[in-house]
Design a protein around this nucleic acid. Structure first.
Lengths: 332, 332
DNA sequence: ATGCATCTGGAATACGTATGCATTCCCATG
DNA sequence: CATGGGAATGCATACGTATTCCAGATGCAT
């Protein structure tokens, strides 16, 4: 069924190795033979077998991307540019969406079918990075990392972003402030909360524990958290959400509960997804360059695969900016 | 670096073929050796090389999924279940997002690195299916197909869905009706429009050409189309959108333009994405089982790879249902 | 004791490509 | 004219696994 380099060799009247060399532009093959081989390959519609090449070169030109939940609107916006950048660098992307089963993920990662891995949904307590390290599989963190010093990671200045929001809320006169943060075992959850808390503390504003919720970076988290926060003795006047998806959950819950945004409640997100700009939300949020985040991760991984990388780890941090829209207001 | 079956064989004191047999539960190896090999493999953390296996068996247990734009909210909802079902069937998923370059896609599809392909964004004028057919690469259409008789496809009853909407709009008293349909070179665009038109005609209601827009299944299509439709001599009282993403664009545009939904305008979508149920939209739409759509496609492809399939093509059609929410109303 | 079936495992090889090494040929140089 | 050297290509083999074929061992029946 498949055309092999032997078939091409036969047609071109040369040996199989010469076909391989000719098509790979090896300088040791003459111009005449090169073109003869090219024509034969063309005529047969020859495409080199990936498995043969892989076995011979021990490199697959394939990279795995691990994501837990693709239906979370955040990930497509990181996967799409990642795919494109990897492609430009000569690699293919293998999407792996595992919800939990680390053992399975591990096995699939270690069968030599990938040159490297992008971890997009790492948690600080995950054992996977150590496993990969031990087996010598190059990998980088994208968006989230473990916070360790030896990480190779492309991340956002989460702490700085949290600070931005805290200062803005204080400036707007908010004092009864709430937070719906991401899971504590993610650096995105942890560091955004950290920066937010630190900047609040610097301004002398407290964050009452009954105004703090933590949960997965999902719509449901925000949707369910708002009623809880509103049920407290004194309702908050502002809520900082771990990311845009959570904030959008809050906005929907507010609509359901008859809470006016921003008159009754200021809502702030994080990430500035395209969706945040939709007319129905006009979400005030913290922005950063998602495309560049992904591109950096791709380039870092490829450099690590090539071995051209600082052995002490390398963390690329993108800046954040406050993106004011229509869900924040001065406290009345 | 990598542990091979030879290493395991050495440690277990058997030959390499025996390792292969033992780990694959070949009945010709005794219980005792099987366990000896198992222990050795365990001790060395052996994972069979995918490339070696592929080269030997000429099957990759890998399937490609072709999608144009992952950031379109529709696709993650089809890709996620597809991934899971393929996984359950013992296949891995290779995501390929090509915007245009068919030649490239073709080459990447024919290097024997995939056992089959799912086409999720086919157009009726695409040459890719013919190429795949010619090279003997098994493939199935998901959601969209080419409409040809020999297709293997998992689709939705688009025509029926369009009819449902038309009848309901007529029942609600609408007479000035508009449509923002999908691209004419997609069966989803074409057949939904067809069913809609047919049922309108049966009810004796016309669809004026200046109330028809066609475009990609994207947010922007709906967002830009609404002002155009409203600019006509007589504004429509209802608009049927090619899918939910387009409808959401319309809802946002309506908000921006100060049009009240459903008081001033009825808006109907198609697909019933989770997002359609969000409080800010409460979109009335046409629902179908997206998970099952994907699962069927996966199973059909695997059957086709295995050769256990009707050679005349096979089209699995899922039913649709009207999902009433808050964006439709009786005409006033 | 011999023959035959059965069970178990090893030797050899195929899969398709890439590459180190050997070979051939030609030309230039002494 | 002989020799050295470089250019071009072929030969042999490696990569890791699966499979076909064959050999040895065992047990049972005759």
């Amino acid at each position: 069924m498949g055309i092999t380099s032997h078939d091409v060799a036969r047609l071109a009247g040369v040996s199989q190795p010469t076909v391989s060399r000719a098509l790979r532009d090896d300088p040791r093959v003459s111009q005449a033979t090169r073109e003869k081989v090219r024509r034969a390959a063309q005529a047969l519609n020859y495409v080199p077998s990936e498995a043969g090449r892989t076995l011979s070169t021990r490199s697959t030109r394939r990279v795995g991307v691990i994501v837990t939940d693709l239906t979370n609107p955040f990930y497509p916006h990181v996967i799409a540019p990642l795919h494109d950048e990897l492609r430009a660098l000569g690699y293919r992307m293998m999407l792996i969406t595992e919800r939990s089963d680390e053992a399975v993920a591990e096995e699939r990662l270690l069968d030599q079918s990938l040159d490297g891995v992008v971890l997009a949904t790492a948690t600080t307590d995950s054992r996977l990075p150590a496993q990969l390290e031990r087996r010598g599989m190059p990998f980088v963190f994208l968006n989230r990392d473990t916070g360790g010093p030896g990480d190779y990671a492309s991340v956002v200045d989460n702490e700085g972003g949290g600070r931005l929001v805290a200062r803005r809320l204080v400036d707007l006169g908010h004092r009864r402030i709430a937070g719906i943060f991401g899971a504590a075992n993610t650096t995105t959850g942890r560091d955004r909360e950290l920066g937010f808390r630190l900047a609040l503390a610097e301004a002398g504003v407290g964050l009452a524990e009954d105004r703090v919720v933590r949960g997965a970076f999902e719509y449901e988290t925000g949707y369910r958290a708002l009623p809880v926060l509103l049920g407290a003795a004194e309702a908050p006047t502002a809520v900082f959400c771990g990311n845009d998806v959570v904030a959008i959950g809050v906005l929907n819950a507010a609509l359901a509960a008859g809470i006016r945004v921003p008159e009754d409640l200021t809502v702030i997100g994080f990430d500035d997804l395209p969706m945040a700009a939709w007319e129905v939300f006009r979400l005030t949020t913290v922005g950063h360059d998602l495309r560049e985040l992904s591109r950096q991760a791709a380039r870092l991984l490829v450099r690590r695969i090539g071995g051209e990388v600082d052995s002490a780890g390398e963390r690329l941090v993108l800046p954040t900016e406050f993106v004011p829209r229509a869900t924040h207001a001065r406290v009345s």
